[in-house]
Nucleic acid binder design. Sequence first.
DNA 1: CGAATTCCCATGAAAACCCATTGTATCCCG
DNA 2: CGGGATACAATGGGTTTTCATGGGAATTCG
Lengths: 162, 162
Amino acid sequence: MALEHLFQGSALNAVDGKGRVSIPAFLRGVIERRGDARTIVLAKHEAFPCLSAYDPAYAALKHAKLERLLEKEETSPDAQLEYQQRNLMAFAATEEVPYDSSGRILFPPMMRRKGEIGELALFLGTGETFQIWNPQLLLDDPRIPEDLKDIARFRLEERGVS
Amino acid sequence: MALEHLFQGSALNAVDGKGRVSIPAFLRGVIERRGDARTIVLAKHEAFPCLSAYDPAYAALKHAKLERLLEKEETSPDAQLEYQQRNLMAFAATEEVPYDSSGRILFPPMMRRKGEIGELALFLGTGETFQIWNPQLLLDDPRIPEDLKDIARFRLEERGVS
DNA sequence: CGAATTCCCATGAAAACCCATTGTATCCCG
DNA sequence: CGGGATACAATGGGTTTTCATGGGAATTCG
């Protein structure tokens, strides 16, 4: 799993009244270099109160990895069950949304609720994937390093939000 | 992690009104020999009041190393969390900026603030990476060897700055 | 028909691009 | 060895393009 192009950087974008958000251009660049889709996949993050996002090419890679894992292990009932569970999470519990020519998606209501995203969406590159946060939830989470919170605060200031 | 080409040397360049700075040519040479990107990655230095900078190839290497570490360790909750935190710091808390045909970047405001860079940027090669300093902060730091400060003073004099 | 959704265009700010100038180090040829 | 010509680096300025975002028209669906 050595991906050539990695998601990096941060941005704070507005969610408008219609539920539209611009995917930052630097993230779109990575998506389009990894494959030719203009689409992102959204999922609830396993550990943090935010969303995890990636491109369809990465979803395929993840699936292949799961498959290999299953074939390698002897097919004990436990391994079978775990595979089924993870596969469900990886595919049923995600939503794929295309972005338009101006780089915006229409935020799916279910995901928006799961990520508790309000009028501001904080995008954070994390290498293979990226995350979408309600900035306030990030500031409130004790597990997030202070230096990263500084960045979130800076992005908020930039927009004139206290 | 034995990189063939290393960053070395020093230079003092101006940041203009638009926030542009020339990356010294001798550093660009190393970047382009390591990979074919014309891009640098900026991060806050962990210990000093300056910025740490490197090329995307080095960032990818660092990432691969993290990944391998995770797969080796048993996936205890603690290890998982630390992995998440380090990934966030390595990718969300950094910015990737391309330099143009004349070798200049547009200094991202957030990083400029984090590094407290004013109108002068002091570049210092440090092998695998290089650093960008506000020269005054380097002179004021008691942890910096006097010989290195002499170099900074020389670069300042060269420009006619007291 | 009404509500929501998709499409299309408008705009202001910021970023990328292009061209010009200057200084300095290098080279080459007399 | 000198001196002019050359190449490249750093920097300044103006112009074009892209980005994020808002609003409205057209279209679909119940």
